[in-house]
Each structure stands twice: as C-alpha cells, then as structure tokens.
Design a protein around this nucleic acid. Structure first.
Lengths: 238, 238
DNA sequence: ATGGAAGTTTGTGCTGGAGCAAAGAAAGCG
DNA sequence: CGCTTTCTTTGCTCCAGCACAAACTTCCAT
C-alpha cells in the first residue's frame, strides 16, 4: 500500500486523526504511525455496504468521518436498523465478540471515510497497545446498552414516542447546530426512520407532518431539523 | 469462608462442577480448586434478586443450577425481560463490557445455585486462566446476537409469532423431555411470557388457550408443555 | 428539457391486539 | 378448614397504526 498515495487522496490522514480517539489515545506517536501504515483507507459514498452479515470477518474498521448504520435483514427481506455509529468509533469488531463472521451488515449512511486493518492484527493491537482492549470492551458495552434500550423501547413505547426518541438519539449522536435548530447532519429518509423505529414510512411521514404543523421540526427531503428539542423530549416520555 | 460448611450444604461442590464449563474447561485441577476456594456459593429460591441494575458491580457469578432472567424496568414500572440465562453460564460480567455497575437486573426464575467471586478477581482470572477471556467474550457475543434477534423480532413479527418464538427458545434452552412432549422445566407465568414478548398476559393466555384447543401445547398453572414443536415452528415463521 | 426514479404526502378502510372488567381455579397460609 | 393471594380465562369494546392506493415533488441522467 502506497502511503504517499493515501496521503494525497486523504490529506488529513496523519497521526492527529487517531491520537484523540479513545482506542488509540494512549499510544505514542511512533505507535500511531505504525498503526496508520498498516491501515487501508477508503472513502465511500452514502449507502455503500462496508461488510455483510455472515461474511468472514477479515477486517476491522475505524470510522473516521461520516455515519454508518448497522442493519439486519429478516427472512422475508425486511430491514431493521439496530444501531447508528458516529465517526470516531470502531466497527466490525467481531473478534471482541468471539466471532469470526460479522453478526450484522454495515452500510454507510452518508459519505464516509473508513480506515481498516486485517483482522489478524487484532490480537497484536490488543497486546501491544495499552488501553485498546479496554476501550473496545467499553464500545461493546455501550452498544449492548443501546440495544437493551431499544428492546425496552420497542416493548413498551408507542410509535410516536419511539420516533421522537430515535430523532433525539440521532440529534445527540450526529446533530449539527444550525440557525433556529439542530439538524441531523446526514441524509435520512422517512423509510430509514421507519426502519429505526419499527413502523411504516407512512406513519413516520404523518408524524413529521403533524410535528411540522406544530413547529417542532422542519424537514425537507432527506433532511430533518429539530426546532424545539424540549417538546420532542416531552413527547418521547409519553 | 468455611469450605467444609460449603461442601456440606452443597455436596456436589467439587472440581467436576466447573471442569466441563467453557470458561473453566481448560484449567488444571489445581487451578479449579483455587477458583472454588475463592468462590462464595449460594442457593436461592425462585424470584430472588441476584443483583440490580445500577448497583456497583462488585461480584460476578456462575449459574450452576436453575435459571436466571435478566430484566429491565421502565421509568413507569413496567418490566421487560431481555434474556434468559440457563445453568452453566456466567452472569454479572459487567467487567467484560467495560462497566462498573450492572447494566440490568438479574432475578432467579427457579430455585438456583450460584457461585460468585469478588470482581477484583476478574483481571486475575483473565490473566491466569487460559481461555477464560475468550470464553467470556463468546458469551457476550452470543448475548449480543440474542438481543439483536429480539430487536428484529419485536420490530417485524406479530404477537403470535413472538410468543411462539419465545416458547421455542425456552424449550431449546431449558426444555425437558417428558412423555408426549417437551416441558419448560421451570415455573413460568403468563405474565412472564408477556414480559418476554412485549404483550399483555391476556393475549398470551388467549393464545395458549387457542393452541391448547388445537393440541399444540398443554399448560397448567406455571407449567407449559409443547406437544407439537413443529407446528409451533410453523407458527413462528408467520 | 424531459423522462424516469426516488422520495413524500395524504386519504380511506380495516383489524390485531390492548384495555377494561369480572369471575373462576389453584396454591399457600394461619 | 376456610380465607387470601396469585394466577388464569374469557367476553367486550375500541383505536393505533397497517395495508393499499394514488398523486405530488425533487433529483438525476440522458
């Protein structure tokens, strides 16, 4: 792999990129340089499949920029989004779950930049890099927590609350402050939202229309801006 | 801790108990003896709280006998069961998730026997015992997989399919072959099932009655026996 | 600019399953 | 043994949200 070529196509690909990210933050500059040299970088447009459920897990990834959604497909073809992963997190870390195939599919939700390493380096990373293991287990823990919350949410809440919650979560993870509100800063369709909240795009569309009438949100095609986050919080509590 | 006393109240508490269980199966007899000496054992009746969500995770557990259910409680007091844990598995392994409080509550679902160790031994176990870490990450991975499945299930399936699935899962995990069928071998109420499947005990009751009329199951108070597992599988597929 | 694809809005009817209520059956207890 | 508690069954009502359908808007490629 030609490092020079990488640097031209991704000018910002230097130590400073990783040095502030939890799994690598305790590393020395020299170590980070090694890590970078072993990495493959890739820029993907939105809706690009990073890896698929069941594939042999031969690489693990760090999302440098953009957003990735983790989805599962049911036997009859329906998609369910189980997680959104924001920039700065590892993904495809099957090894941390004791698996050698990916347990779910990952797709980019917006244009994204990914670093990846061959999975055979995993054990090296764990051994050589102080804090790497700890941080990945924290990541796993956080995702387990999120999944748990989604289960509780799906089990007990109404559709309106779930949609409100989903939007709030996205805002927290990926919100961008703009004039008169906070916008989800990647393209998201009603369909996507319905897959996140286990309902239909029709219902999501209706809800957003209703909220827009009440001035809680404004939305264009693939864009959602929240004007009154507090009102959404109230809604989400039931 | 008086080892002699333990041995009298739990006569079977010797090396053979642990030696076949995954996290300990690679240990030498001498090591297992050390592990046992450091353990506290406890017998609990059904519906006993092992640890609560949010508690400081000061111990981790091995379920030797019985069943444990992992539950979460919503802000308005509703309970949701996220997992059933069968005998032979670790629980309360917050450390493997990078947490120092338990992320959920664990209650015994039947009379159970638990070993436990102070959490400060966790790192020792990981370091000293070959395969311990690997196996716990597999456990975590399996639970993540299960949770993922539950999310997909909740998101896409009808109540009838979910209840059928839940019963099948329980049968697989904890089923006991009896004459003319397989029985869930711990007491489970309609309420429990409804918490597992995110519905109401009324609906579960109706479904079981209907299935009983069709000869798929028979059930007494707190007991469910499946006579025609295949028919249940068909139902669960929708 | 033009046609088509992708995304969104909105209306209408229908139904699965929740909510409520009330009574019956089994287990536990003094 | 009767009394209480816990668990279960069942009937009835009602509505949230799904299915289906059709039109509209925005984006994109040719």
């Amino acid at each position: 792999m030609d490092v020079a070529a990488k640097k031209t196509s991704f000018p910002r690909l230097d130590e400073s990129l990783l040095s502030h990210l939890p799994p690598f933050s305790k590393l020395e500059t020299r170590q980070i340089r090694t890590v970078l040299d072993q990495a493959t970088s890739r820029r993907c447009e939105a809706n690009h499949c990073v890896f698929s459920e069941g594939d042999v897990a031969d690489r693990f990834y760090m999302l440098l920029d953009g957003y990735v959604r983790v989805i599962r497909v049911t036997s009859d073809g329906e998609q369910v989004t189980s997680l959104h992963i924001p920039a700065g997190q590892l993904l495809g870390i099957a090894k941390a779950l004791g698996k050698d195939t990916y347990p779910a599919t990952a797709m980019t939700a917006s244009e994204s930049i990914l670093l990846s390493w061959p999975m055979r380096l995993w054990d090296n990373f764990v051994q050589d890099y102080d804090g790497f293991a700890t941080e990945t287990y924290k990541t796993v823990g956080a995702r387990v927590g999120e999944m748990n919350n989604r289960i509780v949410e799906l089990a007990t809440q109404q559709v309106e609350q779930r949609v409100a919650n989903a939007i709030l979560r996205l805002i927290n993870q990926t919100g961008r402050k703009v004039e008169d509100g906070i916008e989800i800063d990647f393209p998201i369709t009603r369909q996507d939202l319905s897959e996140l909240t286990a309902t239909t795009l029709h219902t999501v569309s209706r809800l957003l229309s209703a909220w827009e009438k009440q001035g809680l949100v404004t939305s264009k095609r693939k864009r959602i801006k929240v004007c009154d986050p507090h009102a959404l919080v109230v809604l989400s509590q039931g």
